[in-house]
Design a protein around this nucleic acid. Sequence first.
DNA 1: ATAATGTCTATTTTATCGATAGGGATTGAT
DNA 2: ATCAATCCCTATCGATAAAATAGACATTAT
Lengths: 150, 150
Amino acid sequence: MRLSKKAEYGLRALIYAARFPEGTSFQIKDLAEKNGIPKKFLELILLELKNAGILRSRRGVGGGYLLGRRPETIRSSEIIRAIEGPLTNGAVVKEGSKIPGEQASPAVARLVRETSEAIESILDRWTLADLAREEQEATERKRRHVMYFI
Amino acid sequence: MRLSKKAEYGLRALIYAARFPEGTSFQIKDLAEKNGIPKKFLELILLELKNAGILRSRRGVGGGYLLGRRPETIRSSEIIRAIEGPLTNGAVVKEGSKIPGEQASPAVARLVRETSEAIESILDRWTLADLAREEQEATERKRRHVMYFI
DNA sequence: ATAATGTCTATTTTATCGATAGGGATTGAT
DNA sequence: ATCAATCCCTATCGATAAAATAGACATTAT
């Protein structure tokens, strides 16, 4: 199961965004530097997330990005879909196959369908708020663990 | 969620193999022709499945491939793993990242882990015997449906 | 007017996928 | 012993997609 860099960056960017108080914006540059994400690449990603209605932006001096909606209302399925397109691949073997004899396998199709549904249900369940909390808690745990050894 | 051609061909090949009585072998050539799968490509796939212990082979004239074990004991997770490598991607962001600032996100890692586990549990549940039965039943249903319209 | 920001389109680079090529090894039949 | 049918193995190609970079444009606070 592979998550594209783009999707990973996108998720991380949104988790970052969720840390800011509602209405407060942040800059691509900071996000890129603090998270080690290529700035130009990140621009594209944030733009897509904006066009998907997940982020909003303010241009010009002092501008930046901010969440377009409350993080509780943003499901990770929506995030991934915004970045990678439709989650479920529809037909496993497309109708107009080039190879003459090629035929779809109903069994394989069913296997893929069931897997896709399972994935989708998990991605539907996790909201950005959940992810942000998880991130914060993990960081906190780590911090305490380090403290313990000082 | 994308299934590679290779994995799809592999699954279809094994479903095909499961139709033969135990101990009976089939030839790459027939499988390729009847299922519209590129023969040379299929060779590679069957070889991998053989090295994974899922298929057995007999060389020389009259040789061919056959299932290495009873289809009830072959889980689709094993099939996919044999063809595509480890299902779960291990670390989402590897430890020794090149980019200095780059850091793994525990939240993203967890999301990926949970999704992978869900996939794996489904793929563990479906055995080759299940797939073969499903395929046969679907074909049967289709046949009856066609008959109905004659 | 200027500098700081996001917006857009194009291009480059790199990796992966799907497929093909061409022998080599083994075996049954004659 | 020879031949043909089969699997076995390695290399390579071409197309596509992923990842990243480049450069100019648009907007806005100061």
